[in-house]
């Protein structure tokens, strides 16, 4: 009996081993090392370093002006990106699902940006913001477009949002569409017979029945918006100055570009991890509860 259990365990280990080795080397060990270095003042090069306790964390949160402004900027971006992306994706999904013709065409159009690399498609937007819109704003009708889209942090915040919306809603739209398709037809018909307005349909039929999709999509957008990097890098490079610097950029700047404060950068990375963990945990637990009620 014991030998059989031993054999079962052995075969389990053999099947899991290749994946586990990769996982250990490239995920677990870096995570443990990062947590460890976050309590040191290592510069990434020297052989020696000192253990500094929670000093890095205190410095990051209390006296690091750039890190704090990066957190604030990212937080502002996360809130608006999560709201706008989900509202637009849901709107698109409902509009497309309510059509009888050209469904596939619209789905392709709105999903297309998701296939492209963020870097490559954002460079197209750089062209639009720096060449096309200035040319458009020469016409009287489009005079209002005459803004410094990439040069003024106040405005470029909205440029970043505009591009993130463009590149991000496709996947969400697909998830919402498949959830809407799952709503039983007889419920919709009953509601229409009872004289429900489109708003009532949304409030009492659609939203409660796609609650699981809402949970997933908000989780996905929270995650991706906190981690945003490529888009901001390609559009503004974090500038002008540090006007549009996001958390990930601040971490990289600390670790590499001249600063070489490796331990300090690690502690900022841990802070980012904790922020995402706590916020998504709260979101999922709250929304899961509501799903059951619905």
């Amino acid at each position: 009996m014991t030998s059989r259990r031993y054999r079962a365990s052995l075969s389990l280990i053999l099947f899991v081993l290749p994946a586990f080795v990769l996982y250990l080397l490239f995920l677990v060990i870096p995570m443990i090392q990062g947590s460890y270095y976050s309590f040191t003042d290592w510069n990434g090069l020297n052989k020696t370093y000192d253990f500094v306790g929670i000093q890095n964390f205190v410095e990051a949160l209390k006296s690091d002006r750039y890190f704090r402004s990066a957190i604030l900027f990212t937080a502002k971006y996360v809130i608006l990106a999560v709201v706008f992306q989900n509202v637009l994706a849901l709107l698109l999904a409902m509009l497309i699902e309510s059509r009888t013709r050209a469904k596939g065409l619209f789905r392709t159009i709105f999903f297309l940006p998701n296939m492209l690399s963020v870097i490559i498609s954002t460079f197209m937007w750089v062209f639009v913001f720096s060449k096309v819109i200035p040319a458009l704003s020469e016409y009287a009708v489009f005079k209002f477009l005459d803004l410094s889209w990439l040069g003024d942090p106040q405005v470029s915040f909205w440029s970043i949002l505009l591009v993130s919306l463009w590149g991000g809603v496709g996947t969400l739209m697909l998830i919402y569409m498949s959830a809407i398709q799952g709503i039983p037809q007889h419920l919709k018909e009953a509601a229409i017979i009872d004289g429900a307005t489109p708003f009532h349909m949304l409030r009492y039929i659609t939203l409660p029945l796609i609650a699981h999709a809402l949970t997933i999509c908000i989780f996905l957008t929270l995650n991706s918006s906190f981690k945003v990097y490529d888009l901001v890098y390609a559009l503004t490079g974090g500038g002008p100055g540090r006007g549009t610097q996001v958390i990930t950029m601040n971490i990289l700047e600390e670790a590499y570009q001249g600063n070489n404060r490796y331990g300090y950068a690690s502690s900022k990375a841990i802070i980012l991890f904790l922020i995402i963990l706590v916020i998504t945990m709260i979101q999922v637990s709250i929304m899961k509860k509501r799903e059951v009620e619905a």
Binding site: P30, M31, G34, N223, T248, I251, F273, I276
Partner: peptide, 12 residues
């Protein structure tokens, strides 16, 4: 481990 963001481990 699916919760670990790449950005947290990228340096190490």
């Amino acid at each position: 481990s699916m919760l670990i963001p790449f950005q947290t481990i990228m340096v190490t």
